[in-house]
Simulated assay, not measured.
Amino acid sequence: MARTPDGKNTSGRGQRDLKVKVKTARGRKSSSTRWLQRQLNDPYVKRAQADGYRGRAAYKIMELDDKYRFLLPGARVIDLGCAPGGWCQVAAARVNASGTRPGKPVGTILGVDLQPVEPIPGCEIHQLDFMADGADETLRGWMDDACADVVMSDMAAASSGHKQTDHLRIIALCEAAAELAFDVLDEGGTFVSKVLAGGAEGDLQKLLKTRFLKVANVKPPASRADSSEKFVVATGFRG
């Protein structure tokens, strides 16, 4: 029997009774109405609200880490494009950034984004364009010149409404994030990034395979089935 993340039965009449319908309001596009209705009926959105996470994306990194185990206590993590902060929240708890797990090493979380992000316990967050000249040196300075164990990115370019253009834009972001990871990762480190399926990701895969021992493409359960997004998880950085 299929169940949602909050444990409710997703089959049969019970699910239809729970569905929230949104009326089209004057001035609101039909696409916006569909998005709002999907949000209101998304079990991961409801679970994020109940668990205190800043967005449903928190469960994506949670599920990826459950499978590949890269957010270990004591790990040094860089979160690129960290707004609104859901990935930072998950990472901070798992690497013991606040030191609340006695006997476990204390990790660090460094989050950066183009826009301001509300503070998150155990995380150091800065407003930064990571693609700007010297950004990798700035990041290293914030990390006291230490290398990172994990570089992760859930970034997406602003939608243009043209599928192929959006695909190329996010692949360009992923490639830039990967290049930064090559500069700041410690040997054996992990790179995690969102990509969109669309054909141009092949070159990114080839690039990562030259620098990491293993490269996997994953669509975690928290990623919507109708979305073209997937995640690349590259482990064992060669240094």
Rank of each mutant, 00 (worst) to 15 (best):
Q205I: 07
I109T: 14
Q205G: 08
V195K: 07
D154S: 03
T108I: 00
C174R: 11
L185V: 03
S193V: 07
D203F: 11
D203K: 12
D149E: 06
L185N: 04
W142G: 00
G134E: 01
T108F: 00
M152P: 09
H167L: 03
V112N: 07
R169K: 13
H167G: 05
M152W: 08
L173S: 06
H167C: 01
P121C: 05
D113S: 14
I109S: 14
V184D: 04
G199Y: 08
D113M: 14
R140E: 00
L208R: 02
L208V: 00
L204Q: 01
F130M: 14
Q115C: 02
A135F: 03
G189T: 12
V117S: 07
L185T: 02
V112C: 13
A157C: 14
S159A: 10
V195Y: 13
L114F: 00
T190E: 04
I170H: 01
G161D: 13
K209E: 06
T190D: 06
K206Y: 11
D144S: 10
K206P: 11
S193I: 03
L110R: 06
L168F: 05
E137Y: 12
K194C: 04
I120G: 00
E201F: 00
V150C: 00
I171V: 13
Q205E: 08
A172E: 10
A146R: 02
E124N: 14
Q127V: 12
E179M: 06
G141K: 01
D203M: 09
D144Q: 08
T190Q: 02
I170T: 02
I171K: 12
V184I: 04
L196F: 15
A172N: 09
D186M: 04
A158P: 13
D203W: 09
I120P: 01
Q115N: 05
E137M: 12
T138F: 10
K206W: 15
E137S: 11
T210V: 05
C123A: 07
V151T: 13
D166W: 15
Q127A: 09
L128Q: 09
I171N: 10
S153D: 12
A156D: 15
P119A: 07
L110F: 12
I171Q: 14
D145L: 06
H162M: 05
G202R: 14
V192I: 13
I171F: 12
T210I: 05
P116D: 02
V195D: 10
M155L: 09
M152V: 08
S159H: 04
E187Y: 04
I170W: 00
A197W: 12
E137V: 11
K163W: 10
S153A: 08
L185E: 08
L114A: 01
L110S: 05
M131K: 15
G161M: 11
Q164S: 10
A181W: 03
A156N: 15
G198P: 06
K163R: 13
D133P: 01
V195A: 12
W142L: 05
G188I: 05
E118H: 10
E179D: 10
K209S: 04
M131F: 13
D183T: 09
I125H: 04
L168V: 03
G134R: 06
A200P: 11
P119T: 07
D113C: 14
E201W: 03
G134Q: 03
S159M: 07
G199C: 08
